[in-house]
Amino acid sequence: MTVRADSWSYSLNGATATSNIVPFTFDTTKDYKFISYIQGNNLDATQVDGSYFSNITLAPYVPPPAGTVISIQ
């Protein structure tokens, strides 16, 4: 998931990313934490036991570098 002040995109399970169908504004001046919430159902105490995260990486958005060609002859 990528989120910027005026755009977003995300991809699940390697699918082609979806971007900016609904425009919005996002406050990038706030401090943020990674968060996940999980809740099982009312019938099975062990329903989602063993669910896990194996990797979590949070990084600042870095725009792609502008292409620069230097030729030395």
Partner: peptide, 13 residues
């Protein structure tokens, strides 16, 4: 500049 979040998860149910 914004954020990128990459993660991998597994749901057992």
């Amino acid at each position: 500049s914004g954020f990128t979040l990459d993660t991998e998860f597994l749901l057992t149910a």
